[in-house]
């Protein structure tokens, strides 16, 4: 629950309420462009759609005829449209850490959309250790195994502003690091909240996200739990460390908050807007340096 007290109050009020359809005049919707763009050390891709009236339940129309390019100083990289994946893509562009890149999208009738980002450096990992932490039998056919991951970072290299940690198995249960103030956690219960200073390890729900502030912590431990059936077992795990920005954390946590918002109380809160770094449009241009490390499970 995003806002427990508001949820409680409105639930009480709504016990007495009634609902009925209504028609009332609203201004006509002016279509805009919505962008989801990603760029990492292997290239860039842009997914582009048009907004619809909120009462129109059709599929958002894909936009295939825009002019999309990425600029870096005097260098220009066009992103042609690939109908197979319905995205604008380029693998010619290899972004360099510390350099600035501008995404420009032009389409007649929509003006020019623009977003500027700086490519962050990669997360330098010196060592990763995994050990079995706990096991619980859920029932006769399934078990829950908890693994302790210990990451040691290499201090010699420049750290990104933030980095996000994910694994291919899904959710985490807790994080313990040597500097508790440097973690941003976004959970279903407490989206976009800094952990209390006396709370370590930090408890998370499954599918929470957490970002670590770069350059502050050289050692991180986190516990992830996985449910396995009788015939299942993971021999390897992929750990992805994505160097990123505070903007992306705000974007991701606003998505979580918007998803969590209960329709019944959303009306009285100012609506939860998805954070955007796109001028003249909606969406997000994400730039990251992604490092994926495969490790054998113990």
């Amino acid at each position: 629950m995003k806002n427990i007290s508001l949820f409680v109050v409105c639930s009480i009020l709504l016990i007495f309420s009634c609902r009925e359809p209504i028609d009332f005049p609203r201004p006509a919707h002016q279509p805009e462009l919505a962008v989801l763009a990603q760029m990492d050390q292997e290239g860039a891709s842009v997914f582009l759609t048009e907004t619809l009236d909120s009462r129109d339940n059709s599929q958002s129309p894909l936009v295939a005829d825009a002019a999309v390019r990425i600029l870096n100083g005097s260098n220009e990289y066009p992103l042609p449209y690939d109908t197979g994946v319905a995205q604008y893509q380029s693998f010619d562009l290899i972004p360099e850490s510390g350099k600035s890149y501008d995404l420009i999208i032009e389409k007649e009738g929509f003006g020019t959309l623009k977003s500027s980002v700086v490519m962050p450096p990669p997360v330098a990992i010196e060592n990763i250790e995994i050990e079995l932490f706990d096991s619980i039998f859920l029932d006769t056919s399934r078990s829950r195994l908890s693994y302790l991951f210990s990451l040691e970072l290499d201090d010699e290299f420049a750290a990104p502003d933030f980095y996000e940690i994910t694994t291919n198995f899904g959710g985490f249960t807790s994080i313990e690091i040597n500097d508790t103030t440097s973690v941003l956690a976004s959970t279903r219960l407490f989206p976009n909240i800094l952990p209390a200073k006396d709370s370590n390890p930090i408890e998370l729900e499954k599918n929470s996200i957490f970002f670590v502030e770069g350059g502050k912590s050289s050692f991180i431990e986190f516990i992830a739990e996985f449910d396995f059936g009788k015939e299942e077992y993971a021999e390897k795990v992929s750990i992805t460390l994505k160097s990123t920005t505070l903007d992306r954390f705000n974007f991701r946590s606003s998505q979580i908050a918007q998803q969590n918002a209960d329709d019944d109380i959303e009306f009285i809160l100012n609506p939860i807007l998805i954070q955007s770094n796109i001028e003249n449009g909606h969406g997000f241009f994400e730039v990251a340096h992604i490092v994926t490390i495969d490790k054998d499970m113990p």
Binding site: H29, S54, Q87, N207, R252
Partner: peptide, 24 residues
């Protein structure tokens, strides 16, 4: 303050929720 429009995100990496977003 009601949404005037809506749009769709393609799958957002790491996300496990619907991609339809109201636009205000």
């Amino acid at each position: 303050w009601l949404p005037s429009g809506r749009f769709t995100f393609q799958d957002v990496p790491g996300a496990e929720f619907q991609a339809v977003v109201p636009s205000y």
